[in-house]
Structures are given as structure tokens and as C-alpha cells.
Design a protein around this nucleic acid. Structure first.
Lengths: 149, 149
DNA sequence: ATGACTGCAAAGCCTTTGCACGCAA
DNA sequence: TTGCGTGCAAAGGCTTTGCAGTCAT
């Protein structure tokens, strides 16, 4: 597991934003807030919906703009897991991360991590004629709930 | 490497289409033709362009429709590697496959394969509470050409 | 002859951009 | 006060759909 709590990520992110010269705007802070409460990948829509539910409605354009900035600062990772929709999740500054299982029946996304997989990818990266600095792995299939139906 | 040549994949695909009750239409056959000459992932646009260059222009809608059918029959794999554009590549019936390196500087996509990675993922899949039936791995970084600049 | 196949144009998503206003610093 | 941040509406890019004509069987 990560050494960082959700609150710690939020502080870290807000601090990084400030250091990078960004002002503490309402919309951006609200997006950081929502992301900090969730450790798996959300779509821009989902973030917008969550904000609306919490009575801190933010224009979708601002959500996208906030996510752009956060991606640039490597505070969130942008992921594409099919269906042509991008998902975003907080990036642990320690380098810790997980990958995703996508259920092809219900569309649910479940995180998992595996040390073996990480070290295999690391060894592999060294072997390639390519400077690898990111990787992602998506497993697709049926989640336990859907399999039983 | 695959045990199937490009021509073999084309024959296999055309045969499967026929078995599944599809007619041998011009557009669909042309898409199969282009895919069979390439073993790494192409976008719908790229397929359309290739067809136009070969004087067998096909409407983009038909390209997409053909790719849909081919995906359903598991003859091609649909991949999303960022930038919100889907890519498609022939799927070897033997189960052989590769993964991709994406250069974040020039956008080039390069295939690679690694037995170690495959077996690690297979072991991992058995360990999970999830029926895994597909996986894909994307490595991002700088290709050798871009690194030198 | 019949209905699958195709191309074109229109419609649908997700995402980005333009612009005017408001707010942090 | 300055110019970054925000929301709205419009524009963009990829993909899908509706429709009428065409072609395989």
C-alpha cells in the first residue's frame, strides 16, 4: 500500500500547485479534493457529478483544465482503458501505483497491484532500446459478480 | 514469432467472416487486406489513407463498421493507447501477441514481445478473483531516435 | 429478387478553445 | 490593479447512425 494517506496527497498536490505558481482557485481545489477521496480512476464526468452532489458544481471545462495541469505536474495519471473515455487518478509521489481490471460485462474498474509484475516490467524496460518512464497494464474479463450470472 | 504469415491471417479472417454469415463485400475485404499487410496497430484513419493510396478508397464509416465486425469475431484487437484514438491490429489465432511502446515525443508506436511478461501476467491472472481473458501493456517513454535529440 | 453492404451526411460523444467576467494575490 | 481562473457556449476530432442506392447471393 501507499505510504501516503488521501489527505496527504491533497496537501502535496495543493502545495505543488502553489510552488508551480498556480493560484488557489475554487474549481481546481475542488477537483483536487474529489480526487483525494478516491484512489482509483475517475472520468471527468464522474468528477463533475461528484462535485455537483457535494454542492460545489464546477464547469466541465474547468474540470478538464484542472486535470491537464495536474497531469503536467505528474500529480495525477491519465489513463485510457477503452470506450474512448479518459480516466484520471492521483499519483502517489512515492512511485507506488496499481493497475486495473476492467469488467467487460458491467464496465466496472477494479485496481490491483502485484510486485512480481512491477519487477518484470522493470527488468524488461532495461532490456529495451527505449527510455521507458511509464507503463500501464489493463486486464479485461469478467468480475466475480458478473461471472456468477 | 507468430506461426501465421500475413496471407494466412487474411485467409483465416475471410473464412471466418464467411462462416459467420457475412457476405464478401468490397469495403470489408479491402480492410482485411490492409490489416493483413501490417502487423502492428493502425488507426481507422490510417487504414482509410492506405486504401486511398492503393486506389481502393473506402468510406470511413465502412472502415469502422468492418473493424467492429472483425473485433466481434476476435479477428482484430482494438487498442487505446492515448490521445483518444483507437488502434486496431490483426489477432493471431494461435494466441501469440505483442505489446506496445509509445514514444511520448514523436508519437510512434513500436511493438515488442516478452515471454517473461506473458508468464508473469498469466500467473497473476490465476491469482485474481477475476476471469481474465485479455490483457494489454503499454510502455511510454522516448524512442531511441528521439532520445538522441 | 432480397436483404446485406456501402457511402454520404448528419448526429453523438468526449474534450478543447474562445471569450467575457470574477476573483486571488 | 493585474492577469489568472472560471463558466458558458461554440468548435473540434473521433466514432456511430440514418438513409437511400448498390451489389452479392
Amino acid at each position: 500500500m501507499s505510504t501516503h494517506t488521501h489527505a496527504a496527497w491533497r496537501e502535496h498536490a495543493l502545495h505543488q500547485l502553489e510552488s508551480a505558481g498556480y493560484r488557489r482557485g475554487e474549481a481546481r481545489s475542488a477537483v483536487v479534493e474529489v480526487l483525494s477521496r478516491q484512489d482509483c480512476a475517475l472520468t471527468a464526468q464522474e468528477i463533475g457529478d461528484a462535485l455537483r452532489r457535494r454542492r460545489r458544481a464546477v464547469g466541465l471545462a474547468s474540470v478538464y483544465r484542472a486535470l491537464d495541469v495536474l497531469s503536467d505536474l505528474k500529480l495525477v495519471q491519465r489513463l485510457e482503458m477503452g470506450q474512448g473515455v479518459a480516466r484520471y487518478e492521483p499519483l502517489d509521489p512515492s512511485g507506488d501505483h496499481h493497475h486495473h481490471l476492467v469488467c467487460q460485462l458491467c464496465g466496472n474498474v477494479v485496481p490491483f497491484d502485484d510486485a512480481d509484475l512491477e519487477s518484470t516490467i522493470e527488468r524488461l524496460s532495461d532490456r529495451l532500446e527505449f527510455d521507458v518512464d511509464e507503463h500501464d497494464v489493463v486486464l479485461r474479463g469478467a468480475c466475480s459478480a458478473c461471472r456468477e450470472r
